[in-house]
Nucleic acid binder design. Structure first.
Lengths: 107, 107
DNA sequence: TCGTGACTTCAACGAAAGTTGAACCAAGCA
DNA sequence: TGCTTGGTTCAACTTTCGTTGAAGTCACGA
């Protein structure tokens, strides 16, 4: 889960995901939308690929990238399971502190 | 947005968020739930604080931490706005590649 | 006011990540 | 077979992050 989040936590890779949100794209098009060196783009694509957030198809000379819906679904499910407040979820605000409550200005 | 994602993309900090999902907690309790050195915990809490994901209240000697609902709401909104497929959102799979479509095995 | 407890900050170190340039594959075409 | 194009991998470097130990701050109580 941390690996997937880490893959998203980068401006370049986030831009790639944003570009792929419009549909499948080959690397040459991604390169226009995300202005980075080809090899650097390839590096970031590999990070996203290894995190399971994108997948690829070779089409002759070209390689198409697209978002992996399962990767994102798994990420959100894991985050929610870990207690991270997802969209629409409330946040608990009550305090539980057994050791330091006694003898101090408790609520 | 990347800063907030980066703050979440760490096992220790994710564990802290998970612990805080149960409600407000002072550092001494967090230290029991997330077994790391006090100063290291303080470092990770600062990262979360500067990312706007948690906020604090001093209560005498103790400092209480709690999740910041606004921080998470902002994060999810920004992610959705950037095109990241959020829970329940579909993923487009059509391809748009003007330059490399001609003269190749197009779909 | 002195000591103690809870927590934070500082300086330093090792380990990763991001970036760059060059070399390298893989597919198509002459 | 050799050239070109699209894309990836490799090696080296710089920067940043995570961790550690020591010092510092803040609040309370004797």
């Amino acid at each position: 889960m941390s690996e997937r989040l880490f893959a998203l936590a980068d401006p370049v890779r986030l831009a790639v995901v944003g570009a792929l949100a419009g549909g499948e794209r080959c690397v040459c098009v991604l390169q226009e939308q995300v202005a980075v060196a080809p090899n650097l783009l390839s590096y970031h694509l590999r990070v996203l690929r290894e995190a399971g957030l994108v997948c690829t198809t070779r089409r002759g000379r070209w390689v198409d990238y697209r978002l992996d819906p399962d990767g994102f679904a798994t990420l959100w499910r894991a985050l929610s399971g870990a207690g991270v407040p997802m969209p629409g979820e409330a946040v608990r605000s009550d305090r539980a502190c057994a050791s330091c409550d006694e003898g101090s200005a408790g609520r």
